[in-house]
Design a protein around this nucleic acid. Sequence first.
DNA 1: AGCGATAGTGCAAACGATTGCCCGACCCCG
DNA 2: CGGGGTCGGGCAATCGTTTGCACTATCGCT
Lengths: 350, 350
Amino acid sequence: MSRQHAEHGASGRPAGSTTIRTIADELGVHPSTVSRALREDESRKISAATRARVLATAEALGFRPNPVASSLRTKKTRTVGLLIPRLADVVLARMFEGAEDRARQLGYQAITTSTRDEPGSERKLAEGLLERRVDGLILATSTTGDPYPDELERRRIPFVLLNRSSRDHPCVRGDDELGGYLATRHLIAKGHRRIALIAGPPELSTTALRRQGFERALAENDLHSDARLVMSSSLEPQGGFDAGTQLLARPDRPTAVFAVNDATAVGVMAAARDLGIRLPDDLAVCGYNDSDLSGLLPIPLTSIALPLRDMGRAAVDLLLARLTGQAAESVVLAPRLIARESTSRPARHP
Amino acid sequence: MSRQHAEHGASGRPAGSTTIRTIADELGVHPSTVSRALREDESRKISAATRARVLATAEALGFRPNPVASSLRTKKTRTVGLLIPRLADVVLARMFEGAEDRARQLGYQAITTSTRDEPGSERKLAEGLLERRVDGLILATSTTGDPYPDELERRRIPFVLLNRSSRDHPCVRGDDELGGYLATRHLIAKGHRRIALIAGPPELSTTALRRQGFERALAENDLHSDARLVMSSSLEPQGGFDAGTQLLARPDRPTAVFAVNDATAVGVMAAARDLGIRLPDDLAVCGYNDSDLSGLLPIPLTSIALPLRDMGRAAVDLLLARLTGQAAESVVLAPRLIARESTSRPARHP
DNA sequence: AGCGATAGTGCAAACGATTGCCCGACCCCG
DNA sequence: CGGGGTCGGGCAATCGTTTGCACTATCGCT
């Protein structure tokens, strides 16, 4: 209440100037009493009257509890670490937004770092977060052979996987097998029989499962899977462009392409353009993720939509469940096909 | 050294099990000695011999200092808060990556939250970060009338602005006036005389300055700025589409459009397509930011490139300079025009 | 030889919150 | 009136690190 405090306008005193002790002195009670009064939970050890007084002067003094002190004592930081491959990837960014949002709702802070897909950086960065004493980790980075989740398990460090699964660690992901199936079935329904797959990198669960769905759809329709029509690639547009250029230069080129993400699908479209192949008449293309660009391309792109934001949210929920020792069931969310112009024409067989 | 420690494999003991005190006991010295030995800086108050011994057993015991305890004592968290409008925006995400990277290099942790462009959320989220005791803030969210930076200044809270400037607060940004000028001059050089501007929201320094550059280029070439060819818009593709649809439906429609970002430029291209206007012959389009999509569109988009990652880095450097009380000069980085097919044809005047 | 400087450590008090334990007051009831 | 129970709150230790201060050798210098 002194004059020096009055300077700090709208937002009260500078953060940290008033502590639990200031309040205690003001009221002539013990700091521990203040502490208990401030946290509801404490099994009714505080009279309603003093609690009210504490709350009132806390408010009046603009008290902001110091989470650092609290963390030191409780050994909980109310912080979760989120590791993702690249932030500039729209898909991951959206999951991040969901996660960050949900974490904040629950009184947690999400802290995120991107591994840039550099080898070994997943582990290094995760350890960095652990040194900062995050309560748990969300990994959106793991690959199929990745030993790191196993190690975390052994070390009893709470974590969940996001988007990409590995072994049977708790994971929140889309149903990629189903997504691949839906995409391919859609193309088959349009009459396509020579369907290529831009498969992405093989060591990711996402791409591997989309491929399985692709093959299941082919098999169900008595189409043989032609290994020459399945191309590994990066997940960047350039990868789609390179693979697409090879595929489309073949004499018996495919009439449809399923690309495991939108970025490579865009690359394929660019390759087609350079080869003078017109969409959607001469070639159908289906992507994955339904990034916000899909609908705005000159030829709007058919794609598989995933509830990305919900996935981020669910990952946080799952992790927090693990933190409180509850049973943590993996979550698999359903994808949805969004049909657009890029697959609008029936196949024209040569 | 006991057996229970041996279980934890590759990464040493569980984080937090060995403290400075463990080491002190092991060596028969006082904890304060260990503390001093571990931090180089300490003005040579420790003999090389004991330092070596401390370092050795710290290593052997897998000691990881607890930053929470350290923060409590020093009142520094080595953490900076970064506020950005939307993470799913490629431009911002790239700046974020730069910032996060640089922060880590310097022993800091960047923690990021996105405001989703919701009104009032900048302030609310920033205060949340401050309650978490971040050492400083990087705001990529401020608008021209925004009172929040002024308030932070009054409260003596260290911060810098990123991308968008406000008053003369310390800021790292691209030279948007120059960028707007370069884009427009490029279009003029192609022979265009009726050039429209998709201006974005007027309350951002970025868009306002790009517009100023646009008008300077026109004035230098004795072209009058036609208010009917300047359209406010959102920064989303939809905004470009709407504005573009209006502009291009005019009988005396422009032969070129400068859109203040790539997303709206894509929207304009979509509008042109719907109206049967062909690019690049009937219409030239120039965007801004050179997002990685620009080069992959069916008609690759001419755009203005900014060193986004460097901007993120520079913002961290600037903030840290302020934190250590050094002079903090704002940084303005130069943009670069990347000419592509969307502006490849000379203007054809009706 | 004497004396001040200095290097190297130890000591203990912080930092701000949490929490197990204890204690006094009061109530209820036989 | 006494005993057990409950309620409300105080006490002090604790989390792990940092840092001002005090102390003791050792060293250099006159």
